[in-house]
Amino acid sequence: MTADLELDCRGLLCPQPVIELGKRIGEVLVGQTVAVASTDAAAAFDIPAWCRMRGQEYVGQEPADDGVPRYVVRRVS
């Protein structure tokens, strides 16, 4: 699944990947998606939690070519 904005957060520890997501989701339009590639174990829980708290849609998880998980979020507001 391709995203409209790819955020490379490999090597960043929590909560940096979520901070990046929060800072940059405004760069896509409503309806478009952001993918956060993260090696941090907490991202698997905190990105869905961020979506719930911020009223955005968590689309799901899909590995990047190097196997690192990418967490895909759709901007809905």
């Binding site: 929590c14 909560p15 174990a41 829980f45 939690a49 719930r52 708290m53």
Partner: peptide, 16 residues
């Protein structure tokens, strides 16, 4: 460097 398995199982925010 693993988040709390309790918070994770609840679907709660684990950082901060």
């Amino acid at each position: 460097l693993e988040p709390s398995h309790v918070l994770a199982a609840m679907g709660a925010l684990t950082h901060g």
